[in-house]
Amino acid sequence: MAAQALASSAHSEGGYATAFPFFGAERRGAPVLAFTRIDEKRVYRKTQVYEPDYVVVLDESLLDTVNVVEGLKEGGMVLVNSSKQPAEVDVGIDVKMATVDATSVALEVLKQPATNSSILGALSKATGLVSIESIEKGILQVFGDRLGPKIGEKNAKAARVAYDRTLVGESHGKRELKSAEKWLPDVKELPIGVAGVPMSTSAGAVGPGSFVENKTGTWKVFRPEYDTEKCTMCNFCWFYCPEGCIYRKEDHMDFDMDYCKGCGICANECPADAIRMVR
């Protein structure tokens, strides 16, 4: 929706814009990929963007598993949702960097960690590509149409607040960013019928039970804080956890933050008040 709102904003300024997500089937909260192209003339190409001018990263933790600057044009800019100063964000290269704590903005304004409207405000500030007024208009239109005018207005406000809080600077990258390796079998290696067969590959395990390779812990905004003293070992949290990332130990529960998505059910259901959600 953010990519669409950006396109709508650019279009309202008289430009031509296309926006599309990588058409996946991701659930809410999962990392997704979306592209926007803005030009003065009609954009014909219907392909993914391989050499972006700007890269927007909605989740700072993705920097650990995705080389976000891959293909970034010379002089391009990276915008990261982060509470850090631009100089403190390391994306592996020397680059123009902008940061905004979009999650905090979203929590303050929307009361939920939906950062896509905030980040658009930040993008306007950082790039000057589209004015904040157009961004607000674009959000009112796209979010408003989809979720109702009240929600549209709130999101437009989030964009404005984020705009005001965005920091622009530079960062000098030191670490080496690496995208996680993918298993890409050729026609000889792929099991017939695309059968899910248990295999260990250079990119890790595939097949039955292999989703453990997917560390969903990056999705969370809040995490459970657990008090062993209060815990009665009733096992409710263990049953209710949708992820199965609470493990039973002899006299306590283990919370696996590599997988916790931060839903908060465990805290909500704990009869002994032994779990609370913190940021």
Partner: peptide, 10 residues
């Protein structure tokens, strides 16, 4: 197993 991609709180 864990690591599945359901929305939080599913």
């Amino acid at each position: 197993t864990r690591g599945h991609t359901a929305c939080a709180g599913c």
